[in-house]
Each structure stands twice: as structure tokens, then as C-alpha cells.
Computed example of a mutant assay.
Amino acid sequence: MIKLIECPRDAMQGMPDFIDTAIKAAYINQLLEIGFDTVDFGSFVSPKAIPQMRDTEEVLSLLDLHRSKSKLLAIVANLRGAEDAFHFPEIDYLGFPLSVSETFQQRNTNASIAQALETVETIQNLCQTKGKEMVVYLSMGFGNPYGDPYSPELVAEFVQKLDDLEIKIISLSDTVGLADNKLIKELFKVQFEAFPEIEFGAHLHSRPESISEKVEAALEGGCRRFDGALKGFGGCPMAKDELVGNMDTEIMIDTLESKGYQLDLNKRELIEAVKLANYVFQSPL
């Protein structure tokens, strides 16, 4: 079974102009009508670091969750953010960005890898007592632009540490679009074989012309969980100066369906969401 995770949070967070809270909520409510497995809707992080996400709590209060089968995921970068997220029973998943790059970990969460791992352990322990599940995003999982050490073996070392903490969902993240198809296929294949009890996801960033082949490479490696954003908007503002867009959800859907996968999505609501995305991300705000 394919799981599609739609990421309006990732699409919005790097936008230079603040998107009105009501517009954010209207857009996410439209996404909730489509039937995605999960919607990554917001983050509990410092408003100084990510000003766009300063209204996540307000947005959550405006979401109509009664008719939607989608689960909600919120990103946290430290214990304080996790404690804020724990107040909301509507949130199913807490996502944490752990990096195999020391430079990016510092840039993204203002902490070392060692400190971040300690935070992961603390949040995971709390998730287990509070009925939520942790999703760890292993960022710079396919290489980094900083010259920090990288190898598939290093990724496996991180996965082993997370497995020891009983993390059950790990999303391998190509934060700056460096991954080639061979690496994508092999990295997923090796991880699935070594850790069959873990659900591995693909959070890839890509130029539009490379999306289909990256999806196919991940599929061949065994991946069945994919993050994306309508129209491919977004990217990580902490990674480098130029944003590399998210995987375009429409292209991913077309690719997956061409391979015979049944996604059980409401296409009429998807069309309406694409129209709204064009307004949210391209019109003057």
C-alpha cells in the first residue's frame, strides 16, 4: 500500500511573505478532503527561525477534521516544541529533523547531532506515554553541500541508533536535491533489508523533470511512503540560499498510478486543491 504525505508546511515555510492564517487553514482543509494518508500541516518551532509557522496553533483550531481520514503531522525541533504539540489530541505524528550533517543540524535546529539524538530519545519516550508516534526525518540523507562526511554506511549507523530507540518511521530526506537514482534505489533497498520492522519514507526534493524517475527508483528500492507538495512548491530555508522544490504531488500521483498503484484519492477535490495552491503560492499575499 502506498502512503502519500502531503506537506503544506514544507511548501509554505520558506515563503517570504506571511500567508494569512485563514488562507492557510482553508488550503489545508481542502487538502484534508483529498484522502492523503497524512497531512504535514505545521510546526511548533521558534517564530524567529520560521516566521511563517508562528500561527500553527491558530491554523489547527480552524481545521475541519470530522470528515477527513487523513492524519495530522507537526514538525518539532526541540523539547519545548514537542511539549506544545502534545497539548493537541488532533495531532497524530510528531516529526523531528535529525541530520547526518553536523553543519545542517546546527543550521536547522541550533544543536549538535549528539544533542539532537538526546532530544529524539526524550521526545520518543514522551510519545510512547502520550499516544503519539514519532517520525524522524533523516535530513541530508543522500549527501550534503557542506563537505561534511557522508556515506550510506553513515546513514545506516544513524538508523541503527533510531532503531535502538524504537523509532518506527524514518523518512530519508534529500534536503537539497543531491540524490541520483542509483543511490536512492540502493539506500532504500539496504535499509529495508537491514531494518524490516521500520517504515522508511522518501522526503525528496527535486527539479520537476527528475521527479518521476526518483519515484521509480525509490519504488524499486522498496519505498512505499512518499512526501510531496502540490505544484512542487517549497523547500528548506535552512539548507542553502536557493530553495530546491518539493516533489510535485501531481507528478508523483501520475507516476504511481502508471505503475498500477491504486491511491484512493478524491480527484475532484485534488483539482480544487491545485487551483487553491496556485492562489496561495503565486498570487500577491
Rank of each mutant, 00 (worst) to 15 (best):
L72E: 02
L73G: 01
A74K: 03
I75G: 00
V76Y: 02
V76H: 02
V76S: 01
V76Q: 02
A77V: 14
R80H: 14
R80S: 15
R80M: 13
R80I: 14
G81K: 03
G81T: 11
G81Q: 05
G81H: 05
G81V: 12
A82P: 08
D84T: 00
D84K: 02
F86C: 00
F86V: 06
H87F: 09
H87T: 07
F88Q: 01
F88C: 03
P89W: 04
P89V: 03
I91A: 04
I91N: 08
Y93K: 03
L94A: 04
F96T: 05
F96L: 14
L98E: 04
S99G: 05
V100R: 11
V100P: 08
S101N: 09
T103P: 06
T103D: 02
T103H: 11
F104D: 03
F104K: 05
Q105L: 02
Q105A: 06
Q106W: 12
Q106N: 13
R107S: 13
N108V: 04
T109K: 00
T109H: 02
N110C: 05
A111I: 06
A111Y: 03
A111Q: 15
S112N: 09
S112D: 00
A114V: 15
A114I: 15
Q115N: 02
Q115E: 15
A116H: 06
L117P: 00
T119C: 07
T119M: 09
T119D: 12
V120H: 06
V120T: 10
T122C: 10
I123R: 01
I123G: 01
N125T: 12
K130I: 00
G131T: 08
E133R: 15
E133M: 09
M134L: 15
M134W: 07
V135R: 14
V136K: 06
Y137M: 07
Y137F: 15
G141R: 10
G141P: 04
F142Y: 15
F142G: 07
F142V: 01
N144D: 02
P145L: 04
G147W: 12
P149Y: 13
P149K: 14
P149D: 13
Y150D: 01
Y150G: 03
Y150N: 08
S151P: 07
S151R: 12
S151N: 10
